[in-house]
Each structure stands twice: as structure tokens, then as C-alpha cells.
Computed example of a mutant assay.
Amino acid sequence: MFAIDTPQNIGLDPARWQHVLGLVRSWTEADQVPAAGIMILRNGKTTGSHLFGRQTCDADSPPIREDAIFLIASITKPIVGMAALLLVERGEFVLDDRVKNIVPEFGNNGKHGVTIRHLLTHTSGLPDMLPNNTELRTAQAPLSAFVEETCRQPLAFRPGRGVQYQSMGFCMLGEIIRRVTGQSCAEFLQNEIFAPLGMHDTALGAPDDWYAGENPTVNRIAELRIPEAQVGSNWHWNTRYWRQLGAPWGGLLTTPTDLACLAQFLLNRGRGEDEPLLSPATISAATRNQFLAMRDVPELERRSRPWGLGWRLHWPGDSRNFGDFLGPHNYGHWGATGSLLWIDPTWQTAAIMLTTQPQEPRGKYLARFSNAAVASLTAPLGD
């Protein structure tokens, strides 16, 4: 899907690109970031996947594996969103269909008006995390328990009248995909997106066979530095429970190279190696400001904090995660585990940074990487 080439041939200033590599290396050498994998994709070419740091957080850990797999947290969300849009293309539902029409038990406590569009744009009023999130995880609860609890929740505001980042909206999208297709969200993503795009090292939740054999695939997963709130728990990001849960809001495991396959697919306007997987019209809708047509969304959100369908668009005047230099057509997402993906269709460019250092709420190292990466780009072809 993309070729390996020199920085100059793919549209990177060689000296500035070397600065990017040196900057990320310095963070890992200083243990500010235990491990990182970065990749720039331009005009269908890349310099490859560059990995730095250690495979685990231990001081005597071996170096990061060249085939390391990262937990990318909330970058999962727009990918699940694309799976939902694939079902829209197939006529299974429309964005303004109510969630209760597919999941009847959802339609209580003021949620009868919540639509699929609300789930995809963070305008549903659902919570980010459930009030009993910690109790569910401590009990090693299955996804079905998170769905059941989300169905019981009241809303923070009437759907479409506000914006509140909501992981549980994507929990419900995963359940909608399951009920419509008869496949789990993880299975549907594997069959309809990952396999066709050649993303062979990607899974929404590690399957059992990743734990099998003398050299199991799970050994490739880079160990995350656990935030204080998770220390001592039986459900933290490095546990088998969380790695296998397959949370539609944050459970995707992948590599920089696999994520670059997804990015190239988006830059190709929905075309895979052999045939279109999503239409250009779908990609366009997913990556434009949905708030412009949602009359009750507050003006501040409409003007300064836009969302597409699952994708976070560029927020002018906000350095968090994306940095300071992205253009008006950029879109992407970030993850609480220290992960970043952004795409600029105008410059035919995508940037990826996957780390093992949680950086919320500001994405300190992600933003600094993004600024240096953008500064390394030379003018797009034809300019």
C-alpha cells in the first residue's frame, strides 16, 4: 500500500527529519517515554517505522522489538465509527435512527431521542466512563456488563444540546454493530477492515491464540507505564483482562505499520489494495465538521471544537495532542496510553506516534512530536 523511500523523496527535509528522530530518541533515553514508535506517510511513501526505547518499563528491559504492538486506547473510537459507517453504506440504518430501535433496552431515563449520529459526535449526553467503572473492571466484567450499565444511565443533557466526550457512546456503537451483523465488534472489524487492508498485527482485544505457543504474540505488546489510578489493580492496561476485553472505546492493539495502512486507506478516500472499502462520500462526511448542521450544538463547539463522525478535527488555538501547526483540513485522534494519529488530505500526509507513556490531559510529547514532524514537511507536490 505504501513504499519505503528516503526522507527527501517522500517530501521531508532530511535535517529536520533527523531532528524528529533524535528528539523522540532523547525522550526514551531519558526515560520520559519508555518506548515509542513513529511513522510519517507522504504521497504513498514512508521512511519506515522507527522504534525507540524498551519493551517493558523495567530499567534492564531489552530494547523495543521491531515488531512491537501497542495499545492505542481511544484511537479505537474513530475506527469503530468507520465500521458503523460501513453499515450505513449498506443500508442497515441511517445516522438519525434512534439507538433504541436497535437496542430497545437503551431507551429509558431520557435516552429515547439519542441517535447514532449523537454517539459518533459526542453529543449524546452519555458519560465518558460509567459511575461504577472501577467496580466493573475489578470484577473482570465482560463487555455486555458495560452495555447493560450504559443502558441504565441518565443523560447529562438532552441529546444534541451539548458536547461531552463519551466513551460509552462507542460502547453502544459496538453493541449496535453486534446486533445488526451477528458478529462481535472485534470480529466485524477484523473481517471487514483489518484483513482487507492487510493489518495482520491488529486486533480489538487480543485473541486467545495470541497467548498460545512457545513465543506467543502477546510478548510483542509493549508494556505501558501504568497511571497512578491503576496501580495495584487487577484490571490495568497491562493485564490479560484489559488486553482481551476488546473495548470499542479503547481496546485496539496495533503497530505503527498497520496503522499506516489505515491512514493510507483514508488518504486514498476509502480505497483498499484491490477495491473500495468505503466510498469517498463516506470519508468526506466522516471528516467534516458535523456540528455545522446541528443547530442546537453550542456555538463555541461549532466554531472552535469541531468533530466529524468519530474523528476529532483540528481545533484552532489548542495545542493538546495535535500540536500547533496543523491545517484546517486535518483530522485524527489520540489515546490515553500516549498515542496519536493525524491525517492531512491536502498535503497527502499522515503522522503516527505510539508510546507507552500516558500523557493526558495535554499530550505533552505527542504535541511536541507533531510540531517537529509538521516542521519537517517540505511543500506539497505542485506548490
Rank of each mutant, 00 (worst) to 15 (best):
G332R: 07
S74P: 14
H122A: 00
Q183T: 04
N330H: 12
K364H: 05
S319N: 11
Q8W: 08
V99M: 00
I72E: 00
A222P: 00
E148I: 04
L173R: 00
L126T: 02
Q55S: 03
M294C: 11
P104N: 06
K45C: 12
A372V: 03
F325K: 15
I343T: 04
F369D: 00
D383F: 02
L197N: 06
E66P: 07
T123G: 03
L278V: 09
L155W: 03
I283H: 07
T346C: 10
L381C: 06
G310K: 10
V99R: 01
F170C: 03
P216Y: 06
S167T: 10
H19V: 14
G11P: 08
D209A: 03
L143C: 05
Q166F: 05
T115E: 04
T6H: 13
F93V: 04
S339F: 06
E149V: 08
L224E: 09
C151T: 07
A263C: 15
N330L: 03
A156Q: 07
L86C: 12
P142A: 04
G335S: 08
Q32P: 12
T76E: 07
E223N: 05
P216G: 09
T287V: 11
G335E: 05
W249H: 13
T121K: 06
L119I: 04
T202Y: 01
L41R: 02
R271L: 11
A350P: 00
A73G: 01
P14I: 15
G22E: 10
L259F: 14
T287G: 14
N9P: 11
E223Q: 15
W210E: 05
D208L: 08
A84G: 11
D324L: 15
I116W: 00
Q348F: 00
E149Q: 14
T355F: 00
H314L: 15
T134F: 13
Q230P: 13
L130A: 10
L262Q: 08
L12G: 06
H314C: 15
E92G: 03
W235T: 05
E192M: 11
L381Q: 12
A379K: 15
F2N: 10
T355E: 00
